[in-house]
């Protein structure tokens, strides 16, 4: 699946987008997998309360299932307006 990062999450991980091969069942499982990869991921995902997640471009949550999901995006709380 495609995993996208925005704002300081993108800066901390160091890339805007990547393809990830994963069997993770939920967003939390995916976060655990990514965090185990390298320190930069662990640092970005250290405090999930400071993060939001969207699945296929709809806001979701960390307990959500990844079944059938093609695009996951991680980002800080939004600051529009």
């Amino acid at each position: 699946m495609d995993v996208l990062y925005f704002a300081w999450v993108r800066e901390r991980i160091g890339l805007p987008k990547e393809k990830v091969e994963t069997q993770a069942a939920t967003v939390s499982d995916l976060v655990a997998e990514l965090s185990a990869r390298e320190d930069r991921y662990a640092a970005a995902f250290a405090d999930l309360s400071a993060l939001r997640v969207a699945l296929d471009q709809e806001l979701s949550d960390f307990d959500a299932s990844l079944a059938g999901v093609r695009e996951v995006a991680f980002f800080p709380p939004m600051t529009g307006g």
Partner: peptide, 13 residues
């Protein structure tokens, strides 16, 4: 405006 502030995916730097 209220929803756009915290539910539309924009980030300011």
């Amino acid at each position: 405006m209220d929803y756009l502030k915290s539910r539309a995916p924009f980030w300011k730097k």
